[in-house]
């Protein structure tokens, strides 16, 4: 009947934590698609800092929260880069899950999960896309 998804969610969360906490340290540090497009027309040095020319990226301003303790996916005060990136990733995954999961939990309708094969019943045709048009009137 009703299948629980908590076990699946727990495993998925673990995968996300490993990706953000460990694998993130092996991510490419080259400018991404947007940044590189905006750098067109400028020359950059080995650290991808603008050294000359004119390009849209020259107009970039500092972030409002550039002083945030987690700014740029690091933890201020943690000198070990690997640890700093990894821990910020772990915090980010847990925070995103808490904010997103909390929001979606509050928004969910008060009816049992799934209901495959059951008429949706009381919620006024919210699932009408599940029935092919023209059947069962």
């Amino acid at each position: 009947m009703r299948k629980r998804s908590w076990g699946f969610v727990a495993v998925g969360l673990l995968v996300a934590l490993v990706l953000a906490g460990v694998v993130s340290n092996y991510a490419s540090s080259h400018p991404d698609g947007l940044d590189s497009s905006l750098l067109k027309g400028c020359t950059v040095n080995a650290d991808d800092e603008i050294t000359g020319g004119s390009c849209p990226a020259r107009q970039a301003k500092d972030h409002e929260l550039a002083d945030s303790p987690l700014a740029d996916y690091g933890i201020r005060g943690v000198d070990n880069g690997f640890l700093s990136t990894g821990l910020s990733g772990v915090v980010g995954v847990l925070l995103t899950f808490a904010v997103g999961g909390g929001l979606f939990w509050l928004l969910r309708g008060r009816r049992p999960a799934g209901g495959d094969g059951q008429p949706a019943g009381t919620d006024g045709g919210a699932r009408d896309d599940r029935q092919p048009a023209g059947t069962a009137g």
Partner: peptide, 28 residues
Amino acid sequence: GRRDLDDRLAPMAGLVAAFIFAVQMLNF
């Protein structure tokens, strides 16, 4: 979205958000 969200989809949606956050850190 409220119409779609139920006891099964809500935790799954939280996981999807967390997973996207994690994978967005992985520049390739």
